[in-house]
Structure formats: C-alpha cells, structure tokens
C-alpha cells in the first residue's frame, strides 16, 4: 500500500505543472499571438472607444432600439459577471406570468402590430447574455423602430440584411441577428460591414 504514496505525489506534481501551468500558458501565449481579438473578448472598438463585446448581448429597453432576448441574470439583465438562465420549469406558473408581462409590454409599445410574437422575444436565454435574436424577432420589431426613428423601412431593412448572420458553413446553427451590432449600425456608430 505505502509504496504507492511517493509515485502518487510525484505524478500529481508533474501533471499539475504540465496540465495546470504549462498547458494553459502555452495556449494563452499562442492565442494572444494568433487570435488576439478573440482571445480578449471579441471587443467592438470604434475610435479607441470600446462599444461592447460582439459575443455578449446588452440590455435594450428603449423603443428606438431592437430588443434582444429577455435575460434572467441576477441583479440586472445581461449581467455578464454572473451568467445564468431562468431555470423555470415549463409548467411553472411564474414562467407563464413572466411571458404574459413581456407580451403586454411589447404590445403596448406598438399597438398597431398584430403579428404573433416570436418565441425568442419572450423567453429568457440559457446564458442570459444571448447576443442574438431570430430573424422573425427582428421582423416583428421593424415597423416600430422605423416609426420611432422616422426612418424609411427599406433603409432599416437594408441594415438588418447586413447584420443577419447565416447558418455557419451553410448548415450549422440557426440564422440570426446580432442585436448589439444592429443597434450600433442604427446609431451610425459602427456598420455591420466593418
């Protein structure tokens, strides 16, 4: 029994140095050289100002912006220091109430809109930081944003087309729109083509 103690301690030390120090350091070093933008959080930078991370959604609550997924993160929506989903079960009455409230807010914001509400606009994402919504959820908000901003519909449609991401490699994932990027484009702060 006892003869295994020394090898056990040495092996643990060796693997700690190898996989706990050397490996992450090597990956960090290589990543910072090969893919510095991605390794540091895919930040959107304009004139030296950091506008956000392309991958991390932000909360939009004003009518002139496209809104993203509801977020269940604690203390405030889109709290990127504490990612989390709602974990509400499908039969939980609270889920039903929350969805009802979200529907009410969206309907009051744009009473003229009678289209059915796309599911991703009223359900919380898994991370609470989902940067995307479906094309259906963008189309649902198109008229409202155009009206509030006094912009012609085709101009906004053109921006939406620019900001829409197709399935990766033609097959993978779902078509989607990055809300932060679309709203930055609307504000003329950074085009989706950049």
């Amino acid at each position: 029994m006892m003869q295994h103690i020394k090898p056990a301690l040495f092996m643990l030390l060796f693997f700690t140095v190898l996989t706990g120090i050397a490996y992450p350091l090597l990956v960090t070093f290589g990543a910072q050289i090969l893919f510095p933008a991605q390794a540091n959080g895919s930040l959107i930078v304009n004139d030296k100002h950091t506008l956000g991370s392309e991958l991390i959604g932000q909360s939009f609550t004003r009518p002139e912006y496209f809104w993203g997924r509801p977020s269940a993160t604690s203390s405030s929506a889109y709290n990127a220091a504490a990612s989390s989903g709602s974990n509400l079960g499908p039969s939980n009455p609270n889920l039903r109430e929350l969805v009802q409230q979200r529907i009410k807010v969206l309907r009051e914001l744009d009473p003229s809109n009678t289209q059915p509400i796309p599911v991703d606009l009223v359900t919380a994402s898994a991370s609470g930081l989902d940067p995307h919504i479906s094309s259906a959820a963008v189309l649902f908000q198109l008229n409202r944003v155009a009206a509030v901003r006094h912009l012609p519909l085709d101009k906004i449609e053109a921006l939406v087309t620019q900001c829409t991401e197709a399935r990766q490699l033609g097959v993978l994932g779902e078509p989607r729109v990055n809300i932060l990027r679309l709203n930055l484009a609307l504000d003329n702060r950074r085009s989706c083509l950049e």
Binding site: N87, T123, S125, S134, A137, L139, G173, R176
Partner: peptide, 18 residues
C-alpha cells in the same frame, strides 16, 4: 419552426443553437 426562426421551447436556449 419557419425560415426565420427555429421556434419550439426556447426558454433556457440560445438563439444561435436553436
């Protein structure tokens, strides 16, 4: 489910994965 959304039970799911 349609051309513009994955649809389904999206509570606790991410848009890019559907």
């Amino acid at each position: 489910s349609s051309l513009t959304q994955s649809g389904g039970n999206m509570e606790g799911k991410e848009t890019r994965f559907g």
